[in-house]
Structures are given as structure tokens and as C-alpha cells.
Design a protein around this nucleic acid. Sequence first.
DNA 1: CCGGAAACTTTTGAATACCAAATAGCGCAA
DNA 2: TTGCGCTATTTGGTATTCAAAAGTTTCCGG
Lengths: 234, 234
Amino acid sequence: MANPEPSELGPGLSEQVAEALRERIISGQLPGGSKLNERELSAELQVSRIPLREALPLLEAEGFIHSEARRGSFVHTFTLRDAVEVFDLRLRLEPFAAQCAALRVAGGASPEDLLASLEFARTGVPGEQASGRNSDLHEEIVRLADHDLLRRLSSLLNGRVRWLFRLTPERDTPGMWEEHAELVHAIAEGRPALAEALASAHVERGRHASLPHLSERLPSEPVPRRGRKTRSPA
Amino acid sequence: MANPEPSELGPGLSEQVAEALRERIISGQLPGGSKLNERELSAELQVSRIPLREALPLLEAEGFIHSEARRGSFVHTFTLRDAVEVFDLRLRLEPFAAQCAALRVAGGASPEDLLASLEFARTGVPGEQASGRNSDLHEEIVRLADHDLLRRLSSLLNGRVRWLFRLTPERDTPGMWEEHAELVHAIAEGRPALAEALASAHVERGRHASLPHLSERLPSEPVPRRGRKTRSPA
DNA sequence: CCGGAAACTTTTGAATACCAAATAGCGCAA
DNA sequence: TTGCGCTATTTGGTATTCAAAAGTTTCCGG
């Protein structure tokens, strides 16, 4: 019944469910504080409760939701503090990723995928999906770094990065593309120290540019607790 | 049947299952390359397949196992490269945690839990479970840092840290306790820059002391592929 | 005697049905 | 109006079942 495509050799149904929920949360379709009703969601996503219940612990580990025993799962409310924390950790991980990537290039790895990603980011429509292209670039750096544990930590961080970027559409700071280009070229030339420093500067500039906007738009605390099931109407 | 304790208001069954498997993997009871048979394990742990299948994706996100579609889950083989990666990321995260914790103390937070943890680490039996006490101290620092995203990334890292420590029993380097004491006191005095630097030095010393031992004991690559179901006998 | 194809078996992925416990909302009474 | 108890929904978990894919074994032909 729930199997219109017999050859689902993809990433497993529970991960598809997790990704679908992730997107709904990031897009604001499921606002902070929403209760995730298992039956409702499994009906909506056309799956049984099994893959859904496999997806929820993943989303909880990523900080998208939090579950209380016997009370259900609720969408996390993204606060200003969360935004600060994202920048805190990007500032620690992205310079390391850049350093690793540059070291790999210096050791003989090819940066062509990274350069292609930069080119793709440049040729895209200026305002359209700038956040997605930004994330893609950073993911490409992590891939080039070829560091398994870094990849895991980054993917955990990345969900929140995407969430944050969705909340700040005016991220097309003039000069940001130049920063990306400088960083990518430092990596492509195999200069780890320069790449690390540029990545630090890039994150720090992003923090400085974003936080003023965010402090107006984000709540400072998760909203005490209101009555009914917090769902957005159709 | 599988409910001898009716008041399981604890951390949820799937997390208990995850923790049990984590322990078996870290302790070597489930060696690298072992196939995790769902039926076998659920029978052994006295649970149904549901909590088990909720636990497996968590273990996969932590890098303890890797799952191939329709082929099952296999215990990750801890290699020398993994050990290097653990130190790489401890070197980035623990200094930040120490800095945060010291800042919190400077802002008025009480370091008493951290000092108690240090005292407990000192009064324990020297050789007995040194690894556990070491991890506890670092977890206490992260707790004091009061940084949600850092906590999540650290908990992901922590599983591998414990795994690594179990593989190196001779971690009681003389002077390690002094390092810990210095670090804790820098935090307790609210000196972020000093705490950060000491944490960096601590991790770097640990790397230098451990890697020579590890390079003899750990495989360089995951072992091509063994014959049958790789299980240790009872 | 060895290699390959077909049939069989095992195991995973997923659905369905079901149950117990606990929370939450509701009505009722003081 | 406010506090209390009842009902009803929902979660956490089990057992059972099914389809499909992977692995294994067997058997036949060269």
C-alpha cells in the first residue's frame, strides 16, 4: 500500500522520514513548540509508526526536537542563544576543516570538486537559495578534508546551520563571495595556515553580520508554554 | 514478559539498549567487524526488535556501527586513524569547553561540582578505571560550560573517547593529574584564556603519550573481510 | 573435476494489530 | 469558582506477519 515504488534502494525509509521532518522544521512549516503526533505524522507521510519512531531519536540527537517520556516530541524553538552557539562551534570546526582540506591538497588530493562548487555558487542566481549554496560549499570542504569524525560532527552541526540560514534571508553580504573565493583558493593552493585563518575570519564576519538581524527576529527563550496543540492551520 | 520493573521512568528503553550495545562494543565483547543480528540481539537483551532498531541509528550516528541496506549492521573497526581523529577533535572542542566554563565561572557560576569531580578523580584508586574518571572530569567541564550545542557534539565525541581510553589502559601518565588540577583551577578561578591554553596542552600531551602505544595495538585498516559471522565465543 | 545457474534459506525492512501505563482534558461536585 | 476524579487519547512497547533482497547450497553441464 505504502509502496508505490518497489525499488526503494535509497537511504532507508526512516532516514527519508527524518529528512522530511527536518525540512518541515527548518522551513517553519512545523514551528517551534509544535507537538509531533505519531499517528498524525505517520498518516501524513504515508508510513507506519515504525520508521517514524526510528527517525525521532535521530532528530532529537540533532537537536531539532526534544522528547519527554510518555508525553511526546516537540519541535525545538530556535532562540538567539542557539544562533550564538552555532557560530561558536562553526568558529571551532570550520577552520579545522579548512586546515585539513588544505593539508590534503598539499598531500596530493585534487581540489577540483571544491573549485566546481565555488563556481556553482558564483553562477547561481544571487538571491535565490544563497543559504543552500553556502552550506554546500562548506560541506564540500569537509568532504575534501576526508576526516570521518569531523564529518559526523559537521553533519550534526549542519542541520542547525541550515536552520539558522533559513532564518536569515539577507545573508548576501557584499564581499561574502570574495571571502569564499579566498578561502577556497587557499585550500586549493595547499596552504593550511592561511586557509584556517581565512575560515576563522569568515565565520567571525558572518557572526558579526548576522547577530544584529537575528536578535530582532528570534525569541530569547522558548516561550513558557501555551494551551493547545500548537499546529499551524492548513 | 520483558517488563519485570513496571516503573521504568528512566531514559527510555531504546537508549538503554543503545548504551548496552555501546558498552559491549567498547569492552571488546563485540569486536570490530561483528555482525549485529537483530533477532539474536533482541533475544539476548530481552527486548523486541523495535527498541533495538531505534538504537541502531543512534549507534551509527556515533560511529560505533555502520549499516548497509538489507545486509545488516556491523561493528566499526577502531583503527589508528580513528584514534588520530579523536585527538584532532578533542583538540578543538575541549579548549573551547574550558574557555566557556571559565567564562561562566567568571560570570558568577559555581565550580563546586567540577572541584568535587576533581577531588573524586584524585581519591580514586590509581589504576582502577582511570579512563572513566578522566571522561567524567571532561564531562563535568562541558556541563559547567552550559552550552547546548557543545554538549551534543561532545556526547557524540565522547563515545569514541571512551572507546579509545579502553584501548589504552596505560594512560596513568605521571603528571596527568597535575594537568587536570591546573586546568580545573584555571576554570575555577574564572580565567578563560589560561583554561583554554591548558586544555590544548593537555590534549596535545595526551596525543603524544598515547599514539606510540596505539600504533602498535590498532590495525591500520578495517581488516578486508573475515569468513563467517564474527562473534566471540561465550 | 570445476564452474555456473537455479532453488532454497536466512535476514532485513516494514506493516498491522494489540496491550499497558500515563498523561491530559473534561465534567462534576463542593 | 476551584479542586477532584473519571474517561479518553497517546505514547512506549510487544508479537506476528509479509515481501524482497542477500547469501548459501545444491545440482547440472562442460
